[in-house]
């Protein structure tokens, strides 16, 4: 294990950003990724361990002017218990409902899930479908600054993002989807709970009669990062989910994914699942 020289727990965003600016900091939120990773030797602690759990600015779920701001420290349990999330961001709510187990959900934060940037991260897929953006805070020249990166630009590889080491993820912003927007999240694991997604799918659309509009499709665990599938979306846009359209959308999606084989699934099986389950999920959405 690497030596942690200093443990700090800032009480404000300003203070946290200041500590980050000095460098060599490991950020600790719920620790549900960080601790197993350091334990297994895949991640090394920096000399300063910063527990951000007492930073009040990183908490809370609120809606302002059509945008829902979710603080980075909001736990999966809090998301799952939020009426706003359940009613207006239901596809995210579904992902939280399929996330790990109670114990993990109580500790795991949304910010941790986003910063960990696993291709299989369960909230990332619905967040992509909801066109969310990250809010990053830093203190480059003595004053607090924030910048926003749309989530579909944020991930640069497995475990890698555009967030700089001096930046803290402050929040995720989600524009409220239009009225009548419905969605479904599907996670393929071998068991109902406590499993890492072999693939995951989020589909959202606005239904006019049976016609799908504003179609958004995102996938997890089939590429180096979670991805949107614009070509599959284009196939469906303005159409009804009949058998031929579903097949065409699935074929388009297969051209957009790059799955690998690992201990959880082969690339072949991941492709088969994407094809079969995308069709199933879209036809569910088409009937909501």
């Amino acid at each position: 294990m690497h030596a942690i020289e200093r443990y700090v727990r800032p009480g404000s965003l300003e203070e946290a950003a200041e500590i980050l600016r000095a460098g060599n900091v490991t950020v600790l939120a719920g620790g549900t990724d960080l601790m197993p990773q350091t334990h297994a030797g895949r991640v090394k602690f920096q000399s300063v361990l910063m527990n951000v759990r007492r930073v009040p600015e990183l908490r809370g779920i609120e809606e302002h002017g059509g945008v829902v701001r979710i603080g980075a420290l909001v736990t999966i349990t809090e998301l799952r218990e939020s009426a706003l999330v359940r009613e207006r961001l239901n596809v995210l709510w579904q992902a939280c409902d399929h996330f790990a187990s109670d114990q993990i959900r109580n500790a795991a934060t949304l910010g941790g899930n986003v910063c960990n940037a696993s291709p299989a991260g369960d909230t990332l897929v619905p967040l992509l479908a909801l066109e969310a953006r990250t809010v990053l805070a830093s203190k480059p020249n003595g004053s607090l600054e924030t910048r926003r990166i749309p989530l579909d630009k944020f991930f640069s590889g497995p475990g890698r993002t555009l967030k700089k080491p001096s930046e803290l993820l402050a929040a995720i912003e989600v524009p409220l989807p239009p009225q009548g927007f419905v969605g479904e999240f599907y996670k393929h694991g071998t068991r109902p709970g406590l499993d890492i997604s072999a693939i995951s799918i989020a589909v959202g659309a606005q239904l006019k009669g049976k016609v799908l509009n504003e179609v958004r499709i995102a996938f997890g665990a089939v590429a180096p990062t979670p991805i949107r599938a614009p070509r599959a979306e284009a196939v469906l846009e303005g159409r009804e989910a009949d058998a031929a359209t579903l097949e065409a959308a699935a074929q388009a999606a297969l051209g957009e994914i790059h799955p690998i084989s690992d201990v959880r699934a082969s690339d072949w099986y991941r492709r088969e699942l994407v094809r079969n389950m995308l069709k199933r999920v879209i036809s569910h959405v088409g009937q909501l």
């Binding site: 071998t190 068991r191 109902p192 709970g193 406590l194 499993d195 201990v263 959880r264």
Partner: peptide, 8 residues
């Protein structure tokens, strides 16, 4: 990754 049967 070694999956024992779980309660659900």
């Amino acid at each position: 990754d070694y999956k024992l049967v779980t309660a659900p």
